[in-house]
């Protein structure tokens, strides 16, 4: 029962969506079946978010209670979750500080704490990339040398000063990089990856629908 019901649900949901791709829902027997399935997906998606929140609270709360290593950070996580979530849940009609609109507590926390922190973390990457490039980007063999030359050309091409430098060497060099590197070698490889990934996804979907793949059930 624990296995059969999810397999049947996965098969039916997948089959409806598969048919909906090939048949017009308005003129075929599918009717409102497709939007109905999609509504269910959104509802289940909402519950998975709730499950995630409950799980993160349970894990962090038990660490704080036991005062295990780094419990202070876990406490900060818990405080942050409640500080962001509670004012956002209360209805706006009670106060303009509630909800997620402009001027709300949620909006303030997002704009002045969360957003600068995330931007700062991401900005640190520039320093690490510069340091890593300087230390590790070596022309050790033919492949590494080819990668080094290509990366240098693309990096120059992507900024105005570099573009001007390339144009100084040969007027048409930026266009050649766009044509032969980005729209040539790069595109061919990316297309291969995209098609390969799509075929893999189709095969995986079929395995799930037929009940062969059951890892989503924890098996």
């Amino acid at each position: 029962m624990k296995t059969t019901v999810p397999v049947i649900a996965a098969f039916l949901s997948g089959f409806v969506m598969l048919l909906a791709f090939f048949f017009n829902p308005e003129t075929s027997f599918l009717g409102r079946l497709e939007p109905e399935v999609l509504s269910w997906v959104t509802i289940v998606g909402g519950f998975t978010l709730l499950l995630g929140v409950v799980s993160i609270i349970r894990v962090n709360y038990s660490s704080v209670k036991r005062k295990s290593s780094g419990w202070g950070y876990k406490l900060a996580t818990l405080v942050s979750i409640f500080a962001m979530a509670i004012p956002a849940i209360f209805p706006v009609r009670w106060s303009s500080l509630f909800g997620t609109g402009t001027g709300s507590i949620y909006d303030w926390l997002f704009n002045y704490i969360d957003s600068p922190m995330m931007s700062t973390m991401f900005a640190m990457l520039a320093f690490y990339i510069a340091s890593a490039a300087f230390r590790a980007f070596r022309a050790r063999n033919a492949e590494a040398t080819l990668l080094l030359i290509t990366a240098t050309l693309v990096m120059l091409w992507r900024v105005p000063m570099g573009e001007a430098l390339l144009q100084g060497i040969h007027g048409n060099l930026p266009n050649l990089i766009n044509t032969y590197i980005m729209n040539g070698a790069n595109m061919a490889v990316q297309r291969g990856i995209i098609i390969g990934a799509a075929l893999g996804a189709a095969a995986m979907s079929l395995r799930i629908m037929l009940g062969i793949e059951r890892t989503y059930m924890g098996k």
Partner: peptide, 10 residues
């Protein structure tokens, strides 16, 4: 400037 600096350092 950062791109040129990285290229130069590489």
């Amino acid at each position: 400037l950062v791109h040129l600096f990285i290229i130069f350092s590489v």
